[in-house]
Every structure is written in C-alpha cells, then in structure tokens.
Design a protein around this nucleic acid. Structure first.
Length: 898
RNA sequence: GCCGAAGUGGCGGAACUGGCAGACGCGCAGGAUUCAAAAUCCUGUCCUCGCAAGAGGGUGUGGGUUCAAUUCCCACCUUCGGCACCA
C-alpha cells in the first residue's frame, strides 16, 4: 500500500503551497465600495464652471423617471456609454460636465397616490433614493452637486418662470421669432400695427391718404378693453382654447396627440375619446419651419431627423377656391398637386366642416345629418379601425372647378380631417390612392391628367384602372397639357394667383401642443383667472407657486382637476381687492424635461434658472445619449423651448443638443422585450452583487454596437468577469513578474495598436471592439514571463473609463498616489504600432492558393516575385498564360490567368 | 399600406474606402491540474467529403457589375422599429 502513504502527504503539501502563493482574490465588492466612497468624498468629478484653461465638454444622459421598479438593465447601457466618454474626455484634458437628475413628475406616482392615499412626493422621494443608490453602485462619474429633481419647488419655480415667458410673448411673423408681448402692445399703441379681419396683427398703412386702409382692418384705439385683451391673448405663445382633446376617462386627463397610440393611451393602455375642453396650448406651430430647417445644424442619426421631419410634416402646395353652384359661397381646398386640378371630379368635405349644413339639400339632408352624427360618436380608434372601408354621403350640392367650369358633386367623408388644411379637398381619383378608393366605391368619374413615363402603366392609367401618384407629363389639362409635373405646379399656381382663384400655401402636420393636464402631480400654472374673465400671470417674484396639500388625489371624472377641490389654495384676493381663482390644471410631464439640461449648468442658483455666463461657457450639449423612444416628443419639445429662450436672449445657441446617440434596447435572454409579465427582466442589482459593477459596465458595452437592439446573456457577463480576473491576476498575483523593463518589440507594438484602437473606438462610440482589443492585449501579456510595468500602467489607464473601480485599485497597487481620473490619456506612436512583416494572401483567379510573408516596405516587384515563386501558385497556374497580376500592398496578390 | 433599420457559425458579434469572411467573447468537445470538484491553463470548433494531406461550398433568396462583393446595382423574402387616411 505505498500509494496511501503518498496520498496522505499530499494535503499538507497543498496547504503549504497555497499559503506560499497567498493569492488575493478579485474582491470587486470591496474595491467598488472603496472607490465610490473615494470619488464621493473627494468630489473627483465636480465640474468647474468657466475654467478657461481647458476646453469644455458637456455630456448628457436622458435623466430617468424614478419608478418603483428601480433601474432596468436598459438604463445603464446609455449611462455607461456616456460615462466612458466623460472619463475619457477628462483624461484628454477637457473640463467635463456630466450631470444626472430625476424626471420625477408623472402618472405612476399619482396613480399610486389615488389608490393608497400616499402623497406622490413621498413615493417619488423613496424611488429617487433607491435609484440613486443603484446608479451610484455603477460608479458613474456624475457631478452629484448638480443633481436636479423636477418636483422640487426650487426647480419647478423655473419651469413656471419659463412658462410665463411663453405666456408673455408673441411670435413676430416678420422677424420669425418670439418677442415680449409688451413690444406688440407698444407697436399697436404707436399705430404701427392694426387689427386685421382675421384677428391677426397687420402692418398699418403709413400713408392712408394715398392707399386707404385695407378693408375691414381696425385701429388699435378703436377696440374696447375686452377686445384688446382678447386680441393680446390670441397672440400669446401660451394660450387657452376650447379644443377637441384626447380625453382618457381612466386616467382622468387629456393627453397630447403624441401620447395616444391608435386610440389607446401610451401610458396604461386605456381607451381615449374625443371631447371638446378648455385647455392650455403652446404655439409650437409657429416654430414649425425653424424646427425643420435647423435640423441641418445638428449631428443626429438621420433616422431621428427623419422622424422629426415627418412629424412636422411640412407640405407645400396651393389653396384653391371653388364656388358652390347656386350659393354665394366658396370652398377653399388645400392641395399639394395643383397640377391635377383638371382631374378633380368631385370634392370632399370633412363632416365637421362648417359649410356642410348650409349646402346640404333636399333628399340628402337626412343622410348628411346621420353621417355627421355617426362620425362624431366614433372614437379615434373606431375611425382608424374602419379606415379600411371608405364611407361618405353626397350633400346634394355641386362645386365649380375653377379651371374648366365643370360642375362636380360635393361629398362628405371622415377620411377628410377637419384639423388639417382647410378641412376640404378636391378629389383627383386618377392620382390619389384615397380618392381612387373612394371613387371606385361610390362610382365617381376618374379622369387621368398625368401620364407616367412607363408606357404599359400609362395605358392602365388612361383606362382608369390604375392610380398613378408619381410625377409625369400632363394630359387632358387644357392649355397646360404637355407640361411636366414640376412646371405645371409652378405655372398653375401663378395662374390661380393672377385670376384671384387661389394662392401658394404651406401646411404642417404639426399641431399646437396641448399643454395642460387634469392631474395633481405636475407643475401648477402660475396663472389667475379674474372675475371679469381675464387671465393674469402670477408675479415672477411670487414663484414658485407650490402645489397645495389635498385630501384626495382622485380626478373628479368630469374633467375637474384635483386642485379645484383645494379651496384655500384656489381662491385668491388680488392686491386691488378683486377676487380671482387659480388655474387648476397642471403641466404635462414633458415640461420639466424640456429644460433640465440648462439647470445643470447652475443647479444651486436661486436668483435665476441659470446664470448667463454659465450658459455661455457650457452650452451647447456636446453629446446627448438616450433612448430612441424620445425621437419626436422630448426632443422636439426641448428644441421648441430652447428656441423661444434663444429668441428672448436667455440662451446663446439656436439648438441645444449638438450630437445625439440612441442606445439600442436590451432584450431579455429569450430575445423578447423585457417585461414583468414575461418574467425575463434582468435586475442590475443582482448582476452587481454577482459580478460587480465593472463587469456589468463592461458586459453592456461588449454586447454589440451601442445603437443595436441586443439580447442579454448572463453567460456573457461571466466572460467579461473572467477577463477582469485575468487583469487582476496580472498585477496582483504576480507582482514579482512586473518589472521596470522595456517592452519587447511585439509587446510594444501590440500596446500601441491597442491604445490606438481603443482611442479611435471611443471617439467613434464603438465600445465593443475597443474591449475586444483590450482582451487581445491581456491574452498576450499574460503569456510573458516578465511584464513591462510601463505597458501595464498604460493599459490600466485605457481600461479605466470602462471598468473604473478595478483600474483605480490596480493603479494604486502599482504604486501611484493619486486617482487616475485626471491622468493623461496614453498616446500611441503610429510607427511603433506598425507591423514590420505582413502576411499576404496569394490568389489565382480570386481563389487563395498560398500565403507569403513580406516586409512592410517591400515593393510591388518584390511581392510579385515572391508570389510567383510559391510552389502552390505554380501548380495552380499550371503553365497557363498570366494575364495580369494585381498587387494590393499589405492585403493580397491576385494572379489572373487565362 | 407607407417610411426607416437590419438579415454573417450553435449564440452575441467582427471585417478600414470593393481586397484573406467569422476577430473578441459565449457555448461545446478533448486534454492538463485535482482523490474529486470548482477555479485556472492548453488545444480544437462555419459546413460537406476525407484517417490525413487536401478538395469543394459558404455572409437571407435570385440575378448583375468586377481580377476580386458581407461591402456596389436590380428584383424578391423575412425580422424589428416608426407612422397610420395630413390631400
């Protein structure tokens, strides 16, 4: 039994061995806490306002809504990317502003309050605390002193202040920008402007004796007090209007068009109906052109620009007047295809068009009434649902086509929207899909007026079998026949203007922004409704107007907001003794997020929302990272607010966000969207507990391109965790193997290649390939007997933006006293990064036959000789004639034979 | 229906401006270490045929341009995202 005795000895030997090695494990938990505390106590990442010694860099994250569920693995993705850039830029010598805050108003906290009676402020604070803990656990380099919370009165004081800027401004058409309303009044008082027939301000004729005033205009002094007030109110950028709104009974509030998806509320998924209500609106439509045009100044993904462009939906065309046969009435239609006027065979009005009742005749009156009623009771959902089949009724009346005096029937149908254009269209079934469908269903005539280039297509169009919506050559169009679509459009528009039958016109899909909500948990409007019906602003010095305590957070169900029940708060005695009531609506959640990036510039300022010097120093935001779900809503609204503030001189740049990147969604391990119901939600807390924040950060960046949608895979986290362990062991387990020696040639080259690739990859937001390069470097260096210290230090520095905790720890263990957060980013030497010898593929007719090794500066002739000397190549050529040899230096050789 | 993005091994993905497809990681297989396991290390891993050397095929499908195509062009299919009668 000699074996036994040997075995008995083994354990004691192993214990000795383990003690000798004294391995220190990678204790991420301890290290991460240590450095997070260090950064916090030392305020390592505090941004210095107007530090002129360094260039500034403002890197912004879309701030989160503090939900009860806490952080989601999707959040850290964008936050890690921006943090890498922030840390990298600091090491590159920039003064970096990298802030975070809380978009804390919103429905979930309020819904919870309605259910449980807990004040939303309490839940909100709890959620913020929890999420702040989670975010801090990831080691992001935020300047925590600049944290903002949109529900803090110290913050929303300024949201209200900005609202008053909207309320006290108008849009000057000539200058195309916002001006204080006081300037408008001044001009009216001075007689430079007068009141036009449409209620708009028009330039007064300075020489009335010669020209006479335009018909219907009135002088300012001719208006009484009420008329003046009404006129002013109609010019404010924030105004009240009775509008059909998206009323969601379940949520007890109205929603913006953008918040309703297919007749269902975006939040909660409840049905939404149309209902006319008194609402506060913001005149975003005045900015439509600038919001569109200024997109050319920003470096955003083209797809996001396109979404905004589509949302704004600018279309250029003409308004054309059609006389109604037998009535002293004209119906104006908007069309983008005035060149198809000769093909207009009928006209369609929206059921809500004001002229419908007047012109409906005889036997058709009843049908029209019934149709109108049906359309009214249809919800948006029904309207879209039934959209597959067109409906409509004939009014009994006829219009006269102004270009050829033809009588065409007037119909009504709900496929024509009252809210767009003039609420009436001319129908050209031969060249518009919707009109074609309608004409087929109701057997209306189809006259082709545009001939497509394609001959077979042209024949089909001729027979009325095919609807052609493209450009072509005009046919059946009187004296315009033969013109191209573009020429026709121009000539007919001029012709219409000459004959006073129409004019060039521009329309937008964009509607004014419905800005009020019948909810409790939002910013109160700083407005007072006086007994005489006028509305006045709360004085700026009395801001913030703080939300009152209420007994119940329930909406009343008839549209009366919860604030209406807070009697003490509601009723106000004005200094002049009059009684007034406060506005009881609150602002939508977007309000706070429209300008938070400005508050970060000067978060503690209680004299102003931000100091002008701070704004001039930090703005614009250099890099903005967030989800693509905000492509139109938040980004369009912020741009709008920013432009208004720009017009009034409060900010110095026309656009707030220079560069925008959207991180892609992270799916569950099953490749599906993460959701509680699917049970595939990954909790960041658990990942941090199991593998550490550095692994979490590294994994999220390693998964794939930042912008891509990609599934989570916990085993993938394990992979990057192993990588960090290798890095750890390189420095900690084998400290004796690190020495102050020069790197060998290959190691040096790989180091410089790695620095180069990581640097360029961060610059291009390609974090996944940067990480794989660092893995290649570590795999190499771990094979070395003795490791050059300088190379290891450089590596730790380039690793630090990705995995900052372990990097700080290793940096310290390597004998450095200070944090590496402000160390210089390692530089690479292009020459040292270059390979000396390279392997070239040798192809014969595009197929690889052999590989040759040549020096980097071998000339073409040398490469050719070497390639032709290869035995495999010789046998592949097999005596055939060589037609051509293509040499791509540093790539390959291709021999063409024939 | 329209618009946009994308389709590459078992999986996530890589490939500069048309120039060796599959880097890096996961998984899997085999081996070393271990009494055993974990951890770690080494080797292999696109597919087919072959013991092997090697041969052929291969980036959603079908065509085209080119000495050379994941990359450019045309048509189609699929998936994801957005819009949804905006005249």
């Amino acid at each position: 039994m000699p074996y036994l005795s040997i075995r008995r000895k083994l354990p004691s030997f192993r214990i000795v061995k383990t003690m000798e090695e004294n391995k220190e494990l990678y204790n991420f938990n301890e290290i991460e806490k240590k450095w997070q505390n260090f950064w916090e106590t030392n305020k390592t990442f505090a941004a210095k306002d107007y530090d002129k010694s360094k260039p500034k860099y403002y890197v912004l994250d879309m701030f989160p809504y503090p939900s009860a569920q806490g952080l989601h693995v999707g959040h850290p993705e964008g936050y890690t990317a921006s943090d890498i850039v922030a840390r990298y830029k600091r090491m590159k010598g920039f003064n970096v502003l990298h802030p975070i805050g809380w978009d804390a108003f919103g429905l979930p906290a309020e819904q919870y309050a309605v259910k449980t009676g807990t004040h939303p402020a309490i839940t909100t604070q709890q959620n913020i605390e929890n999420m702040r803990r989670q975010i801090k656990a990831l080691g992001f380099s935020y300047d925590w002193d600049r944290q903002v919370d949109t529900t803090d009165p110290k913050y929303y004081k300024w949201t209200q202040w900005i609202f008053l800027k909207f309320f006290n401004s108008y849009f000057d058409q000539t200058e195309q920008k916002a001006r204080p309303i006081s300037e408008l009044i001044k001009k009216l008082d001075a007689g430079k402007l007068c009141v036009g027939t449409d209620g708009q301000a028009v330039a007064a004729n300075l020489v009335p004796a010669v020209m006479g005033e335009p018909v219907g205009t009135r002088k300012w002094y001719e208006l009484n007090k009420e008329e003046k007030e009404e006129f002013i109110d109609e010019h404010r950028l924030a105004y009240e209007d009775e509008v059909p709104v998206n009323w969601c009974p379940e949520l007890g509030t109205v929603l913006a068009n953008e918040e309703v998806i297919g007749g269902i509320s975006e939040r909660g998924g409840y049905p939404v109906i149309r209902k006319p209500m008194r609402q506060w609106m913001l005149r975003i439509t005045k900015y439509a052109d600038r919001l569109q045009d200024d997109l050319k100044f920003v470096d955003w993904p083209p797809s996001i620009k396109k979404l905004q462009t589509d949302w704004i939906g600018k279309s250029i065309g003409a308004e054309v007047d059609f006389k109604v046969d037998g009535f002293d009435e004209t119906i104006t239609v908007f069309t983008t295809r005035p060149d198809t006027l000769f093909g207009a065979t009928y006209m369609v009005l929206s059921p809500e068009h004001p002229i419908v009742d007047e012109i409906a005749t005889g036997g058709q009156i009843k049908a029209v009434e019934e149709y109108k009623k049906a359309a009214q009771s249809k919800s948006d959902l029904d309207r879209t649902d039934l959209a597959k089949e067109k409906t409509g009724v004939f009014t009994g009346a006829y219009a006269i086509n102004p270009v050829n005096e033809t009588k065409i029937p007037i119909w009504i149908s709900d496929y024509v929207l009252i809210s767009y254009g003039t609420g009436a269209i001319m129908s050209v079934p031969a060249h518009d899909d919707r009109d074609f469908e309608f004409a087929k269903k109701f057997n209306l005539p189809i006259i082709p007026v545009v001939e497509p280039e394609d001959k077979t297509l042209a024949q089909k169009v001729e027979k009325g079998e095919y609807c052609f919506i493209g450009d072509g050559i005009a046919i059946n169009s009187g004296k315009f026949t033969g013109l191209s679509t573009a020429d026709f459009k121009e000539q007919i528009t001029n012709w219409l203007e000459e004959k006073d039958l129409g004019s060039k016109a521009v329309n937008y899909k964009l509607r004014d922004w419905l800005f009020s909500r019948q909810r409790y948990w939002g910013e109160p409007f700083p407005l007072l409704h006086c007994e005489d019906g006028s509305t006045i602003a709360v004085d700026e010095k009395d801001l913030p107007l703080v939300l009152p305590q209420v007994d119940s957070f329930k909406p009343t169900g008839d549209g009366q907001p919860p604030l209406a029940k807070s009697v003490n708060w509601l009723n106000v005695k004005l200094p002049d003794g009059r009684n007034a009531k406060r506005e009881t609506n609150t602002m939508p959640q977007w309000a706070g997020s429209c300008w938070y990036y400005l508050r970060y510039l000067d978060a503690q300022n209680d004299k102003a929302g931000w100091a002008k010097e701070n704004e001039k120093y930090w703005m614009p935001v250099d890099l903005y990272i967030g989800g693509a779900e905000h492509a139109v809503l938040h980004l369009l609204y912020s741009r709008f607010w920013h432009k208004m503030l720009y017009d009034l001189g409060y900010v110095s740049t026309p656009e707030p966000f220079t560069k925008l990147i959207n991180q892609g969604m992270i799916l569950g391990e099953d490749g599906q969207k993460m959701s509680k119901s699917r049970g595939n939600v990954v909790n960041p807390d658990k990942v941090i507990t199991d593998y550490g924040a550095d692994s979490m950060r590294l994994y999220e960046m390693f998964m794939g391109p930042l912008e891509a949608v990609k599934p989570w895979n916990t085993q993938g986290v394990e992979g990057v965790y192993r990588f960090l362990n290798k890095v750890w062991r390189m420095v900690i387990d084998e400290p004796n193997n690190i020495a102050d020696i020069d790197a060998d040639e290959e190691t040096g080259r790989l180091l410089h290649q790695t620095i180069k690739k990581v640097t360029q990859d961060i610059d291009n937001f390609r974090f996944n390939t940067a990480i794989s390069q660092m893995m290649i470097f570590i795999n190499h260096i771990n094979r070395l007997e003795t490791k050059p210290k300088k190379a290891i230090e450089a590596f730790v520095l380039i690793l630090s933006p990705f995995a900052p905790h372990i990097a700080e720890e290793l940096w310290q263990r390597l004998g450095n006293k200070n944090t590496l957060a402000h160390e210089n980013w390692p530089k690479f030497d292009e020459n040292l990064a270059k390979e000396k010898e390279i392997e070239l593929a040798v192809q014969v007719l595009g197929k690889i036959k052999d590989k040759i090794i040549v020096s980097i500066d071998a000339d073409e002739e040398e490469i050719k000789q070497k390639a032709l000397a290869s035995e495999k190549v010789i046998s592949a050529i097999a005596g055939k004639e060589i037609k051509k040899i293509i040499v791509i230096k540093s790539r390959l050789v291709n021999i063409v034979i024939g």
